[in-house]
Amino acid sequence: MHLGLYTAPLHDRSLPEALEVVAGLGLNAVELNTGGFLPPVHVPVDEIDAEPATAQRYLETFKGTGVSLQGLNCNGNPLHPDPNFGAVHAEDLRRSIRVAGALGQTRVVTMSGLPAGEDGGRIAPWVVNAWSSGHLDVIERQWEVAVPFWQEIDQLAGEHGVKVALELHPQNVVFNPPSFLELIERTGATNIGVELDASHLFWQQMDPVQVVRRLGAHVVHAAAKDVRINPEAAWCGVLDNSFRRLSPEENRVNLGGDEYVNEWPKDSAWDFVALGRGHDATYWAEFITALHEVDPDMALHIEHEDTSLGPVEGVSEAAGVLLEAARIAGVR
């Protein structure tokens, strides 16, 4: 298996500097951002897309580092109704697939996206509990938009020898195993799989190990990110909307168009935490074992989003747990 890092927390460093950090932590792989919510800091995507032959010169950066490139990441919402959001992310995804092919990469991670719930709508609503027929109408309309787009992407991925790995992420048409399988059934796609990020499964009360074993070969990539359920969940549940809107004067991250990341609830029901702070190394060993049974060449990358820890501090803590889990699982 390839145990590595999605390098977003190291975007303040050059690629050689980031690779040095990764190798120093005992990890052997990286996943690099190529667009969507985050800019392509570590990959010259426009240059490679314009002239694929330059990919080989770029790959020289990895030689002698002990770290290999194992996947590109283009997480975003390619179905958002705002063309300054959705259309941009959709083209980022197409470009990422072309660039992956040029780089000899077989995995592009992204999200399935979420369109408007009605013709002409400007908001992308995520229905979390479709108890009324009107909510099912919204979901059906969103599938009508999603299906032709993903059929197009499936064909493009096949042309470039790529598997598109969908993160099972809330606020997307595909957010759990049944919705993923529905996408495959509706589209007939053969080049779309799952990026198994355990964190989003944890707080939705899914068991990542069971999901890996039931999805089997549909799982083509994975992320190591932990979640801690807090006592506040007993009061408000895990569907907590007490986020704070950040003002233009504050440091905020643009998601696309005129949408920004909100401030996380102060008394949160759950938090993304460094590996080991929600589930111990023994649990992660089970997760690694399940992934290894699906594909011994699977890439599993740390994704750092623990805001209580600095980037290198958080990645270092997670790497220690991941390597211990791999030792317990006996896969390295």
Rank of each mutant, 00 (worst) to 15 (best):
V321C: 11
G276E: 12
I48N: 04
N77W: 03
L69A: 00
E303T: 01
N129G: 11
H169E: 03
V212W: 04
R122C: 15
V315E: 06
R57N: 10
L291P: 05
L3T: 10
H135F: 15
T61N: 05
V162N: 00
V127W: 12
L322A: 03
V43N: 07
G134A: 14
D258R: 04
M206L: 09
L275T: 04
M1A: 05
F272I: 01
E232M: 15
N241H: 07
P78N: 05
V212C: 14
V212S: 10
D137A: 11
L114I: 09
D197A: 00
R245A: 15
R252F: 14
E249F: 10
A29C: 06
N172M: 11
R98N: 03
V312I: 13
G257A: 10
E324A: 12
P178S: 06
E17F: 01
E159I: 03
G193W: 02
F243C: 01
I123L: 14
A233M: 15
V127T: 07
E60H: 03
L246W: 05
V145M: 15
M206R: 09
N75L: 07
R252K: 14
F62T: 00
H301L: 13
N172A: 14
F272L: 15
I229L: 10
H42T: 07
D197W: 06
Q205A: 14
T54Q: 07
G320K: 06
A217T: 12
H42D: 05
R122T: 15
R277A: 15
P44N: 08
G193E: 02
Q210D: 13
P178M: 08
G216W: 14
A326L: 01
P44V: 10
K225A: 15
D240R: 05
V145R: 13
W264P: 04
E159F: 14
L69F: 01
E144F: 04
L322C: 04
D82P: 06
G36Q: 00
E286I: 04
C236I: 08
L156S: 09
Q205F: 14
G64N: 03
R95P: 05
W270T: 10
A290W: 11
E185G: 09
A290S: 11
A290K: 07
G330N: 09
N241W: 03
E293K: 05
A124C: 04
L196Y: 00
Q155W: 07
R332Y: 12
Q205H: 04
R332N: 14
E60A: 13
S133A: 15
E159Q: 07
P170Y: 05
Q204T: 06
R244M: 09
D82A: 12
E259L: 09
P265I: 09
T54L: 12
Q210S: 12
N230E: 14
L79W: 07
E144I: 02
